[in-house]
Simulated scan of single mutants.
Amino acid sequence: MARYFDIDDIIMEDELISVVYQVGANGVGLLDPGAERNCVEQGAKVELPFWLAHELHMRQAVVVSAPPCFNQKTRKEIQADAAFVDLRSRCPYFYEFGCKVAPLIGDRTIGSFLLYAFTGRYKEVLSKAHSSAFITTSKYLTLLTKEETQLYEAARSSMTAFKKWRVGGPRFERASILRKRKPTD
């Protein structure tokens, strides 16, 4: 419930995920746009939002399949050059979504894959935030996930504040009370 009203969490949990029904269900025809009847039969493969797939999985009504953003093609691209893979187009909330979906699909390699992807991109994100001109970084920003964009913005603002301080921003000053004290004999 801590993130119940978080808009990013709501958008992330609306990400579509493929499921296979383990039981038949009546009155859910709207979940499958191609369905002619108002029910889904056992073994039917349907795309559902993550929040609904999670609930149905907890009730053992569906089996969740790995999302395409965690397939072998994506893994190979990240292993080749993680810094320049367009993760935003695959899943804007790549890391958080991966953490939430991993227990449902039972793939123990997703955690290490997410760590590898993040560490491979972390250095490049900070490097671009600290040194690049805005023109070159605007194209780079389109490749970043929402989490990486927040990291980039935090690094950019800290570098801007540091440069402002170094050039002549407010310096440490003695408290006025210390100036008025006279030495005692």
Results as ranks from 00 to 15, higher is better:
47 E>K: 15
106 G>I: 09
38 N>S: 12
55 E>I: 11
77 E>Y: 12
7 I>Y: 12
147 E>S: 08
123 K>P: 00
149 T>L: 08
26 N>Q: 13
14 D>P: 04
52 L>E: 14
109 T>S: 15
142 T>V: 13
156 R>M: 08
141 L>C: 05
117 A>C: 13
149 T>G: 07
71 N>V: 06
4 Y>D: 14
179 R>G: 02
171 R>E: 10
25 A>G: 02
91 C>H: 05
57 H>Y: 07
96 E>Y: 01
173 E>V: 10
69 C>F: 05
48 L>T: 06
45 K>L: 07
50 F>V: 05
18 S>M: 15
107 D>H: 04
80 A>M: 13
1 M>G: 12
149 T>Y: 13
144 L>R: 04
128 K>H: 03
164 K>F: 09
124 E>N: 00
154 A>E: 13
83 A>K: 14
109 T>G: 10
178 L>M: 11
26 N>R: 11
97 F>T: 00
120 G>E: 00
126 L>C: 02
85 V>S: 07
26 N>C: 03
47 E>L: 09
121 R>I: 01
168 G>Q: 04
104 L>V: 01
41 E>W: 12
100 K>T: 01
77 E>S: 12
178 L>I: 02
145 T>M: 11
49 P>M: 03
148 E>S: 12
110 I>S: 06
129 A>M: 00
177 I>P: 00
183 P>T: 07
160 T>R: 13
177 I>D: 12
16 L>K: 08
15 E>K: 08
53 A>N: 03
15 E>L: 11
7 I>V: 12
29 G>V: 05
4 Y>N: 12
103 P>F: 02
109 T>D: 15
134 F>G: 00
44 A>K: 05
104 L>S: 03
132 S>T: 01
180 K>R: 11
58 M>P: 00
159 M>T: 07
14 D>F: 15
83 A>S: 11
113 F>R: 05
16 L>T: 06
183 P>Q: 10
155 A>W: 01
5 F>I: 09
